[in-house]
């Protein structure tokens, strides 16, 4: 303390300025790495298979389960960033971190280590969904409206957002008298340990189509569920952002 009291206000102000910069240089990369770590394990173990393989990105389950898992981290950390720091970047930043980690992992693991072609295992794109969430938050400054409008669009737009990337893989072709998609053929050619099980799970239904009304209906339902999911996880974000202390451990 004695050393401090000998300093002038200008010195302390200068010190504070340099301290702020140093903390920024350390904490911003820390937070981005944190988003990448948490989002990666969360996404991988809830919906990872759907995003790993091109033949998993179907019209029925992939557009439904993906936004549900994807909206969790933007909700939790979005609350922290907006409520505590007034930074409307929770959606964009967390999804950017996930996307960067996914690209590194797909290239190093699935392509480099496993030998699968990149065009079979490339990650889907979700960044625009984060931008939508953050934009609605900035415009409305309301978690309610961000969940209702942003959450709905977040859930509904996953398929159309990725359609330009997926279209070429959904072209029908005939092989040995059976009709299947290009993505299906890639899945059969690059054998994985449980392909029949995967196909059975994804395509269990009474009628298989290549498009039609299945996707729009899924998108509407996904949008509705994502609204609820986003609100719930924002609430969780408000809980975990609290500075809770305990006097005694036991």
């Amino acid at each position: 303390m004695s050393a401090v009291t000998t300093n002038t206000p200008a010195q302390v102000a200068d010190f504070r300025h340099r301290l702020d910069i140093t903390v920024d240089w350390l904490v911003i990369p820390l937070v981005i790495m944190l988003f990448a770590a948490v989002f990666s394990v969360h996404f991988a173990l809830l919906v990872g298979d759907w995003d790993y393989w091109i033949d998993w990105r179907d019209r029925r389950w992939w557009p439904l389960v993906t936004p549900l898992a994807l909206s969790v981290i933007p909700g939790v950390f979005g609350y922290l960033l907006w409520d505590r720091l007034r930074l409307p970047v929770g959606g964009t930043l967390t999804i950017l971190a996930l996307s960067a980690a996914a690209w590194v992992s797909r290239y190093m693991n699935f392509h480099g280590f496993g030998g699968f072609p990149m065009d079979m295992v490339f990650p889907s794109t979700f960044i625009a969904l984060g931008l939508i969430l953050d934009t609605v938050l900035v415009l409305t400054r309301s978690w309610f409206w961000t969940g209702l409008i942003g959450g709905y669009l977040f859930g509904a737009l996953i398929y159309p957002l990725n359609w330009p990337l997926l279209a070429a893989y959904h072209v029908p072709l005939e092989l040995h008298g059976n009709m299947l998609t290009v993505a299906d053929l890639m899945g059969f050619e690059y054998v994985r340990t449980a392909i029949p099980e995967y196909v059975r799970i994804i395509e269990h239904s009474t009628l298989r189509t290549f498009g039609g009304v299945v996707t729009p209906l899924t998108a509407v339902f996904a949008g509705f569920l994502t609204v609820l999911s986003y609100w719930f996880w924002v609430w969780i974000g408000s809980l975990v952002s609290r500075t809770t202390w305990l006097r005694k451990i036991i």
Binding site: L30, M33, L34, A36, A37, V38, S40, V41, A44, G48, Y52, A101, A102, V104, S105, R106, M108, N109, F110, F113, G114, G115, F116, R192, T193, A194
Partner: peptide
């Protein structure tokens, strides 16, 4: 956090790759 990123993303998904092969 860096350690967690490496484990949760790179190492975990190398395991995902391994199990599919």
């Amino acid at each position: 956090t860096i350690c967690a990123y490496i484990i949760f993303s790179l190492y975990a998904e190398s395991d995902a790759t391994w199990h599919q092969i």
